[in-house]
Each structure stands twice: as structure tokens, then as C-alpha cells.
């Protein structure tokens, strides 16, 4: 015994939300060869099947790439600061991948551990996440290696699991999820079979052990050699959350803003003196892996990776975390 919803039911849900002026975001084909999570104009833009996952992640709906924190006005010889209104639009993230949803509890910790980020938390409260369990995976996927699976529940309010084409089993995990789905479900005899995930590729504990003790290893030199230092991996990663804060404005007024940043950029750790503690790309690569599998777990008790594989797929030179991690796992570094 289960509850199901059809594609039409989902479309109706999307239409209703949009009609009420709320935001709905989900996977959509923005052009040939490019599928992204984007705000939807209508249910027909929603893409549910026949692809692995979007090239970006869900984080931009909670932690946008650009956010104004407060405003300022130059007034004579003084400066006047003013608060900005917090977000207030409810949003539905639909057909999200479990590996994206699993990143949200991680981000919750990051934006609340020392001070509570008002804008983030407000958005989080206004957000309902409907995931769609993965029915396919590719060579870049490795959720099973980091303790997740194609139908991992973490971060989902509701999870959809495919039954037939256009029909989904609905599993509500939270109250938010249940109220969203209320009156939309049909009981059914069908129960979806658990989809198969990718084979396990490495053990995070081994990786952690390795990075702890091999800070100066030549392994990093050879691994990082072909990295070009762009931010494609970090910016499409569901869990990477570094940001930069600057003031942006004209001669009369402006705002303090927060923009995404990436530890792969050469300027990321550049000191005003000109000294750069991570002075080359291998050091920056090492930092990314260390942070995800050692430094972050040290502080928060869990790894900073959901195995989505976006870093591999989006890397212009085919590096990504996975190849590094599997090499560590295989002991190729020794």
C-alpha cells in the first residue's frame, strides 16, 4: 500500500503555487545540452526524466550567488546605513535530487553555528523540498560512497519515487511535506522498488586518514597539476558555501553584498602583503579535499560532500573530486 501522484498532479501543484505568486524551482532544460535548476514559469518547463541531474545545485535558492546584506547612503560627509527587507516569498523546490537535498542540513549548520544568518534561515523556513529519487546514475555519481543513496531521505520534505512513466510513489518525510501533499495523493497497491545506486568507490574514513597525514605528499602536486583554477566545481557543488563580502555602489549609495567565492581561485587566500599561503593550484586542490573530508568533519561531525558528481561533470579538464578520492582509495598515492 502506498500513495501516488501523477505528472498531471505535479503540474497542478506547480500551477497552483505559481498562481499564488509563490516561487517554484526545478530541473529544466534551458538549452540543448544544458539542464539546470531554475525558477519555473510553468509546469511544462519542469523536466522529470531522462537525465542524470542538473549541472547546478539547489543551494542557490537558499544561499544565492549574490545577496545584498544592507544598504548605505552617502550623506554629506557622513554615511547612513539601512536594513534591507528579508525574503518573504514561499518557494517550492520540486524534483530535486536527493544528493542536493542532503546538502541542505549541512548548509543549515554552516549558516547557524556561530551566528544565525537571518536571510538564509528565513529562506529555509519558506522552502519546501520535494525530491525525486534517482532512477539512473553515471560514472561521476558516488552518493553511495559518502553514505547516501538514490533515495536518501535527508533534507527532503517529500520524496517521489518513480513507478511507471508519469506516475510516482510519494513518501512524505516531514509535516511540511505532508501538508503540501494533502489532498493530492491517490492510494495505490504499487510500491516502488528501491533504485540501485552506483557502486561504492572509496571509503571516506580512509580519505580522511590520508589527508590528515599527507599534507606535504607529492600526490597533491601531480593531482593538481592540470587544474586551471576556475570555480566551476565549487559553484556547482551543493555543499560548497564560501562567500566574499564587498561594498558595491556608486558615488551616492550602495550596499554591502555577499557573493559566492571559491577556494580554487588564486586570489582566495591572497594577503594584502602579496603573500599567498596557498600559492599554487595543487595546494588549492588539497584544500578542497581536506576541507570536505577532514576539516569540516572535524568541526561538524560529517563530511561536506553528497556524492553528486557535479565537480567531475563540470570540470573543464576532467578532474573533479571523484578521481582524486578513488585514487586515494586505491592507494595509488603510495
Amino acid at each position: 500500500m502506498s500513495f501516488t501522484i501523477t505528472q498531471d498532479g505535479l503540474s497542478k501543484l506547480v500551477n497552483e503555487w505559481l498562481a499564488r505568486g509563490k516561487r517554484v524551482a526545478g530541473p529544466s532544460r534551458v538549452k540543448r545540452d544544458c539542464i539546470l535548476y531554475v525558477p519555473l514559469q510553468g509546469p511544462d518547463q519542469l523536466l522529470l526524466e531522462d537525465f542524470i541531474r542538473p549541472a547546478n545545485s539547489l543551494k542557490e535558492f537558499l544561499f544565492p550567488k549574490h545577496e545584498r546584506l544592507f544598504g548605505y547612503r552617502i550623506n554629506g560627509n557622513g554615511v547612513e546605513l539601512f536594513e534591507l527587507e528579508p525574503p518573504k516569498t514561499e518557494q517550492l523546490l520540486i524534483a530535486a535530487r536527493p544528493c542536493d537535498a542532503a546538502a541542505l542540513p549541512i548548509l543549515d549548520q554552516v549558516f547557524n553555528w556561530d551566528c544565525a544568518d537571518e536571510f538564509y534561515n528565513r529562506r529555509r523556513q519558506l522552502t519546501t523540498v520535494v525530491t525525486l529519487a534517482c532512477s539512473a546514475h553515471d560514472d561521476a555519481c558516488f552518493c553511495t560512497s559518502v553514505g547516501l543513496s538514490p533515495c536518501a531521505e535527508r533534507g527532503s520534505d517529500v520524496m517521489l519515487v518513480k513507478l511507471d512513466r508519469g506516475k510516482y510513489e510519494v513518501r512524505c518525510h516531514t509535516e511540511k511535506g505532508r501538508s503540501l501533499m494533502e489532498g493530492r495523493l491517490e492510494p495505490s497497491d504499487q510500491v516502488a522498488s528501491e533504485p540501485l545506486g552506483p557502486e561504492k568507490r572509496f571509503d571516506p574514513a580512509e580519505v580522511r586518514e590520508f589527508v590528515k597525514h599527507n599534507f606535504a605528499s607529492a600526490f597533491w602536486q601531480s593531482e593538481g597539476l592540470t587544474c586551471l583554477g576556475c570555480g566551476a566545481c565549487a559553484y556547482t557543488c551543493p555543499t560548497c558555501h564560501c562567500f566574499d563580502i564587498i561594498d558595491e555602489g556608486n558615488a551616492n549609495e550602495g550596499a554591502r553584498v555577499r557573493n559566492w567565492d571559491s577556494c580554487q581561485f588564486s586570489m582566495f587566500t591572497q594577503h594584502a602583503s602579496g603573500h599567498n599561503p596557498r600559492e599554487n593550484q595543487p595546494a588549492r586542490q588539497r584544500q578542497r579535499i581536506s576541507h570536505k573530508f577532514d576539516i569540516y568533519p572535524e568541526k561538524f561531525g560529517e563530511i561536506l560532500c553528497t556524492g553528486c558528481g557535479n565537480c567531475t561533470r563540470n570540470c573543464p579538464v576532467g578532474i573533479g573530486a571523484l578521481s582524486v578520492l578513488t585514487e586515494i582509495g586505491h592507494g595509488e598515492h603510495l
Binding site: V30, L36, V38, N56, E60, K65, L228, G229, C230, G231, A232, A234, Y235, T236, N259, W260, S262, F265, M267, N314, P316, V317
Partner: peptide, 24 residues
């Protein structure tokens, strides 16, 4: 609108070789 300024376009370009990009 979709650009996230990851600068992959700049980094892969063989002819974008400034050590400090004008955007920085």
C-alpha cells in the same frame, strides 16, 4: 542571468593570461 562568475571561461582560455584579471 545564469552566469555564476566561476570564471571557467577565463581560466580555460589560452589567451587570458593576466596574473591579476581586471575583474579582480
Amino acid at each position: 542571468e545564469r552566469c555564476v562568475k566561476c570564471y571557467a571561461c577565463r581560466q580555460v582560455c589560452p589567451l587570458c593570461y593576466c596574473e591579476r584579471c581586471i575583474v579582480e
